[in-house]
């Protein structure tokens, strides 16, 4: 149960940070990169704790690798723009 509370708190903090970055005067490339990084960390938390993959090593590695590839694609498309 405490793991779920930590996951929810982590998601809430990352969402708050995303809002702060979006409202800040930070230059667009850096702001966008931080926003994507926060989204990546949030997706990891949902996989690991809400979907209970933290203790399932094989599937966890595969899914997190797939997520990392997808985020790398988004970072690339954002960076090129």
């Amino acid at each position: 149960m405490s793991g779920l509370v930590r996951a929810w708190a982590g998601l809430a903090v990352l969402s708050a940070l995303t809002t702060l970055v979006a409202l800040s005067e930070l230059a667009a490339p850096w702001a966008g990169a931080l926003i994507l990084l926060a989204a990546w960390l949030k997706a990891r938390l949902i996989f690991l704790d809400y979907l209970a993959l933290r203790d399932v090593s094989g599937w966890r590695s595969g899914l997190l690798f797939g997520l990392a590839l997808f985020m790398a694609l988004l970072f690339t498309l954002y960076g090129v723009a």
């Binding site: 998601l11 995303t18 979006a22 966008g32 926003i35 994507l36 926060a38 989204a39 949030k42 997706a43 949902i46 996989f47 809400y50 979907l51 988004l74 954002y78």
Partner: peptide, 13 residues
Amino acid sequence: LVWVLLFPVVYLL
């Protein structure tokens, strides 16, 4: 999960 990926891409970037 879909929303945490969709939200930044569509609304913030």
